[in-house]
Design a protein around this nucleic acid. Structure first.
Lengths: 248, 248
DNA sequence: TATAAACTTTGCGCTAGCGCAACCTTCGGA
DNA sequence: TCCGAAGGTTGCGCTAGCGCAAAGTTTATA
């Protein structure tokens, strides 16, 4: 099902692909050559499943270009989006957290270019390549931090604040400058946003409409542009600035 | 503020303290001796802060006895309890996730005995002690898994289900068999439960009262006993058994 | 170019569970 | 033994935001 994407080897992989990516940046050219020679490259369209929660973790991945969406699906069939991974990061690194199955499902949130290696090489990477493991654990720590922040937000904030903060984080992490603001750099639907913030697509739609009227965002089908980040930040902190300034 | 607890060295530490604890179980006696000789032991009363979120991670810890509560405090002063750590686990291992400050606050949820080492020894432990790092990353993975599960629960379940599942997990992880069921093995208030499930102490109180009438739990001040785990599980899955069976 | 599929908007009513308030119970310390 | 503090219970009213429904818009497909 997930293998309908192109799987070609992209000719021979160039070393410059990896030299500036943290887990590999301290390595010699010959080491990088070696790493690339063991890698499988793959170009995927948007919406392609890379691996599923519970699958045996047979490979680990490096996202060279595009975005990966990580999500979990409940018994009742509901999706919860855990995070989005930007290019230049490892993912599917079950071994780094002592697991032998993937803890979540990963699919491409945009067109993407992905390298992967068999998990059997993991220990070798950790042992032989300086800086690989420390960078890896930094990534794990970052993601743990993000998930923790979500727990705190979900436990303490109103829907409007959560959505505002989520959107700000999205444009901060993956934003692309456009004419009238900063745009989330991959297709994102109301449904997606609702799965990131534990609400419904209806509520997201209402919020975006309201924000658009206030000039905070501009959105169209599958696209969201933040045009007034400061205004959104005020909302995210829970102070509704327009009331404060006009009523007192 | 947090140093009012006893800080005595508990005489000389016995090697048997560590020999059966996973991160150290593969080590020779001499290695364990060495580890203990560098350790500081501390016995803490309930409610003592071990470290605070944001503090420089100068030490890492092993809980020998008791329970640790890990929590975060928001700007608005609200607490969110992330998890409870049972004895035999490392904690405060910021280095394992590439951080140099603690990502959360840790305090004792019961009387506790805690060993600790300066973080400067971390790399040495990882390098010299076989199995230490893999066990460490398993712990990180477990905690990541738990936090992920909370996100999913908070995003998809009703309060009643979340509380039921949280309680079941507590007795599963820390339960102590008592006459009429399984009791959570440390003091736990309605407030604590509410901070674990993103609700209010009032709602927890109402739920526990209702469950007590149905014979699912028995609770008194700071104590909760689960007396019918299967019944609670049914609630946790979202099927209210008494309605289902009587109305159809 | 028509049609379906995917995505979005908006209105309306309802309810889970919060916030407040008042009161009760248990426990530890003087 | 008394008092105060911490913890727990319960009633009541309210509202954020969900669920449903219906219709509009954009995009892909035939």
């Amino acid at each position: 099902m997930e293998n309908q994407s192109e799987h070609k080897s992209l000719a021979r992989l160039d070393e410059s692909l990896l030299t500036h990516i943290p887990p590999f940046s301290r390595l010699k050219d010959s080491q990088i050559r070696d790493i690339l020679d063991h890698a499988t490259a793959r170009r995927c369209a948007e919406g392609v499943t890379v691996f599923r929660e519970g699958d045996p973790a047979e490979r680990f991945y490096m996202l060279l270009d595009g975005y990966i969406r990580v999500l979990r699906i409940t018994a009742a069939g509901e999706q919860v989006i855990s995070l989005h991974i930007p290019s230049g990061q490892l993912f599917g690194i079950a071994r780094a957290i002592g697991r032998d199955t993937y803890p979540a499902t990963a699919l491409t949130a945009s067109e993407a270019i992905i390298l992967s290696w068999p998990t059997t090489l993991w220990d070798h990477f950790v042992r032989e390549y300086e800086g690989f493991s420390s960078e890896t654990y930094k990534i794990v720590g970052q993601r743990l931090g993000e998930i923790n922040m979500r727990v705190v937000e979900m436990a303490t904030q109103q829907v409007e604040q959560r959505v505002a903060n989520t959107l700000l984080r999205l444009v901060d992490q993956t934003g692309r400058k456009v004419k009238d603001g900063i745009e989330v750099d991959f297709s994102i639907t109301r449904q997606d946003l609702s799965e990131m913030t534990a609400t419904t697509l209806h509520t997201i739609s209402r919020l975006l409409s309201a924000w658009e009227k206030k000039g905070l965002v501009k959105s169209r089908r599958k696209h969201v542009v933040v045009s007034n980040a400061d205004g959104l930040m005020a909302l995210g902190r829970g102070c509704a600035p327009q009331h404060v300034s006009q009523q007192v």
